[in-house]
Amino acid sequence: MIELHDLALDAPDGRLLVQGLDLALPRGGNLLLTGPSGAGKSRLLKVIAGIERPARGTVLVGGHPVWPGDGVLALAGKVRLGFAFASGGLLSNLTLRENLALPLRFQGTPAAEARQRTEAALERLDLLAVAELRPHAVSASARRHGNLARVLAMEPDLILLDDPMEGLDAADRAIALELLQTWTADHACTLVIAAEEPHAFTHLEVARLQLSPVPMESP
């Protein structure tokens, strides 16, 4: 599902984050990206998703060339991609329910099926009570769960999650972890999680890849 060849990533300030990365993750595989803040975990997710360009290297998703190429446009209509950002990601002018339903409309999902999938995802993430509220009117935990619920409703082929447990209390973590366990057991989807604190994912059956900051060159 994901193939990376000689990948190099840089930060907005030009600092090199990752260099010479090779990776092959098969369809249905599960991967946990770990490493300290600034090691390039979030950047790597965005490069795989095709929304940010690498400094060098090749990215293929589902056999389709993302980089070099047209980025996320290369996956349109070919790979269903679900991405939950570490912060934000929900449209502020839509309710949580509308946020979940919007990608399904873009996919051309029949209205009855879209409603069923939206309601099921809201219930799974314990969001029905706040479904008619906009993101700014709900808690940070509810916004994080809203991002996960939107991914769930999409039934994607590839799921990219950026620190999905960060800031959640024990009860909310349990809800999120149960969903992640379901995804890891689903051989129809491929899951990549980026997290600075890997201990939260101890019970998940995932391969692990630790990213380390590239040492600064001496002047």
Rank of each mutant, 00 (worst) to 15 (best):
L133Y: 14
S141F: 08
V18Q: 00
Q210R: 15
A176T: 12
T182S: 14
V138D: 03
A142T: 11
L91E: 07
T34Q: 06
D22Y: 07
A188P: 03
P12L: 00
Q116H: 10
L81C: 07
L73I: 13
L127A: 04
H145L: 14
N147C: 15
G38H: 06
P26I: 08
G63T: 04
E155A: 13
G20F: 13
G28Q: 00
L21E: 04
E196V: 15
R124H: 10
S87C: 08
S141Y: 07
L17V: 02
E113W: 01
P135R: 00
I193V: 13
A8N: 04
A24C: 12
L128Y: 03
G108F: 12
D6R: 13
L158H: 05
S42A: 09
P68V: 10
H5T: 15
T184Q: 14
R27H: 15
A86I: 08
L90W: 08
L81K: 06
H136Q: 14
H145G: 05
S42I: 11
A129S: 13
T202N: 13
R173S: 10
E113G: 06
I159N: 01
S139E: 04
A76V: 12
E197L: 12
I51M: 07
L96K: 02
Q116E: 15
A129W: 05
A101Y: 13
L133R: 14
D172G: 05
F83S: 09
V192T: 05
A137M: 14
F85R: 12
P26G: 08
L17W: 04
S218M: 12
D126K: 04
D172R: 00
R80I: 05
I159H: 05
N147I: 07
G20R: 08
L211K: 06
D70P: 01
R208C: 08
D169S: 01
L75T: 06
L152W: 09
G167I: 08
A194W: 07
A176E: 02
F201W: 09
A174Y: 02
A142S: 15
A120P: 02
L33Q: 04
K46E: 10
G82I: 06
Q210T: 15
V59T: 05
T95G: 00
Q107T: 05
R134G: 03
A174W: 05
H187T: 11
L158Y: 05
A200N: 08
D6P: 01
R43M: 14
L32D: 02
L94Q: 08
G20L: 02
P198M: 06
A170R: 10
G146C: 10
L128K: 11
H187M: 11
L125Q: 07
R115W: 12
P219K: 10
L9E: 01
E3W: 03
R97H: 13
V214G: 04
A55W: 02
R143N: 09
V18K: 05
A84Q: 09
D163L: 11
V206G: 07
A153E: 00
V59C: 07
A84T: 03
A121H: 01
S42D: 06
Q210G: 14
H136L: 14
L96Y: 09
P65D: 01
A24N: 13
T118N: 10
V79D: 04
G71Y: 02
N93Y: 15
M154C: 12
L94E: 06
G50L: 01
R15Y: 00
